[in-house]
Nucleic acid binder design. Structure first.
Length: 479
DNA sequence: TTTTGAGTTGTTCGA
DNA sequence: GTCGAACAACTCAAA
């Protein structure tokens, strides 16, 4: 047993099933738990506005649970490596532990820090705290990374071993507070002007919030395959922000599902649960791709898409961002995103297809906006899904798959409840017109107090024309 | 080594 | 209304 060790918290803001924390507690008498704010080291993807909001609350929750175990969370600002080295010196710590991250800039930085701290005589160990399997653990038979989901899923399922969960330490004794720590509230993660009412209403960030949410949702999991597409219901798990910040681990979710429905590890999963399990594995696939193709947050995986004749009309981008495209389903999704920091998966596909195919705006613009506005913004998932929507990524949607925002609305929001909730100026419009107000007869618009081009915009593009234009542009790319 | 069949989420058109 | 076909190109893995 050494005297003191350090745990560096990043995207693993939980006490249960936290390998770095367990390693520290079991190898030393005292554990210094630290969080370091170093946005410049996250470039070009420092946390966006919604993510910072989440982070601020999640760190507060973590600090509180550490205190309940006799511990403490110390926050710092500045270069992570230098901060850790200095803290080790100050507290006379002999080891530093953390759970690994997989973004290219984080890998480069963490590798350097590990080297530097080791050279200073410290024990440094990192762990897998956020994936079921790490990227190098899944390879095809030629030893190469996968680029198609289904074979990845098969290989993954075969390679997956039952993983024992780690319980939260009972006590986390901490050393004296080192100097230069910064109060959490001084990190500036929480808004100075109160724009976060909608986020507060929807979310309880933190480890406890994650478990409340999974308990609420889990009884729906067996019907996930049918429920997940209904935009006006609660059928998706909404665990994405908790997973991103590591307030719950995918191992914990996997266990919970097996335990709740009494499934033996390795036994075949019933359909609904299998579809959900696949979603967790899509997340793993996203990390697999980001790890093996680190240029993809900015560059299309299929190189020929770099030549695509994108539009550069900033006013169209702004209309999309603000939810003023004149297509109710798109606008509802974009406004909900702005209001709550989140969007239903089905709606994400609709708005992404609209940006890329109807407006011909670069998928990177969409990815950037999502990065800044989503509480679950995750470089791996965001990259995979935008490239999938744009058709330029791994296992991409075929070029001719262009979502029709009207028929998608009619299919997945059949009564228009979703639109009415998030686009209140259309609230009184009857069901037949709710997804296509421009086709409503004048009396219907008048009765609903809708003035097209007045209090609600006319469509910024015509669906049929936009669709044909996209097909043409995509054809030109192939030639 | 080469061949072959299959592959998250859709739309439109014509029979 | 319902149904099947067409809308590519490329990766992967089995044969």
């Amino acid at each position: 047993m050494s005297d003191t060790s350090i745990v560096w918290f990043r995207q693993d803001l939980r006490l249960a099933d936290n390998p770095a924390l367990v390693a520290a507690v079991s190898s030393s008498h005292r554990v210094l738990c630290v969080y370091i704010d170093s946005p410049q080291e996250e470039e070009p993807w420092p946390p966006g506005g919604a993510a910072k909001w989440w982070l601020g609350h999640s760190l507060a929750a973590l600090a509180q649970s550490l205190e309940s175990k006799g511990g403490r969370l110390d926050c710092f600002r500045g270069a992570a490596g230098a901060t850790l080295a200095q803290l080790a010196k100050q507290t006379n710590a002999s080891a530093v532990y953390w759970n690994r991250r997989y973004e290219p800039q984080a890998i480069a930085r963490d590798t350097q820090i590990k080297k530097d701290l080791t050279a200073q005589g410290l024990t440094v160990e990192s762990f897998n705290g956020s994936l079921l399997l790490e990227p190098p653990e899944v390879r095809n038979k030629q030893g190469k990374p996968f680029q198609v989901f289904t074979p990845f899923w098969r290989a993954f399922y075969e390679a997956l071993q039952p993983i024992p969960l780690l319980t939260a330490p009972r006590k986390i004794p901490c050393p004296h507070e080192p100097g230069k720590s910064v109060k959490l509230s001084r990190l500036g993660y929480l808004p100075k002007i109160p724009w976060d009412a909608g986020l507060k209403e929807m979310w309880v960030p933190g480890e406890e919030g994650a478990w409340e949410r999974i308990e609420q949702w889990i009884m729906l999991a067996p019907k996930y395959d049918g429920l997940r597409d209904q935009t006006d219901r609660d059928g998706t798990s909404r665990l994405s922000p908790y997973l991103h910040f590591g307030e719950i681990s995918p191992r914990q979710i996997w266990h919970k599902i097996l335990q709740k429905f009494r499934i033996q590890p390795g036994a075949p999963l019933p359909e609904g649960l299998k579809v959900y399990a696949k979603e967790l594995v899509w997340r793993e696939f996203a990390y697999h791709l980001l790890f093996h193709f680190p240029q993809t947050p900015l560059e299309p995986l299929r190189a020929q898409y770099a030549e695509f004749p994108w539009n550069s009309d900033r006013s169209l981008l702004r209309a999309w961002q603000r939810g003023l495209t004149g297509y109710p389903m798109v606008d509802a999704g974009m406004r909900r995103l702005w209001h709550t920091g989140w969007m239903h998966n089905r709606v994400r596909m609709i708005v992404a297809s609209f940006l890329v195919k109807h407006l011909l705006l670069p998928w990177q613009d969409g990815a950037r906006w999502f990065w800044d506005t989503l509480v679950d913004a995750d470089l791996a998932s965001n990259t995979l899904n935008w490239q999938w929507s744009a058709g330029c990524g791994a296992d991409a949607a075929p070029y001719f798959r262009i979502f029709n925002p009207v028929s998608q609305g009619e299919k997945f929001d059949p009564y228009g409840d979703y639109v009415r909730k998030w686009v209140p100026e259309l609230a009184k419009l009857d069901v037949p017109w709710i997804h296509k107000p421009w086709e409503a007869p004048p009396f219907a618009l008048q009765a609903a107090k809708v003035e097209l081009g007045g209090n609600y915009p006319l469509p910024v593009v015509d669906h049929v024309k936009a669709r044909n234009r996209a097909l043409e542009a995509l054809k030109s790319l192939r030639e």
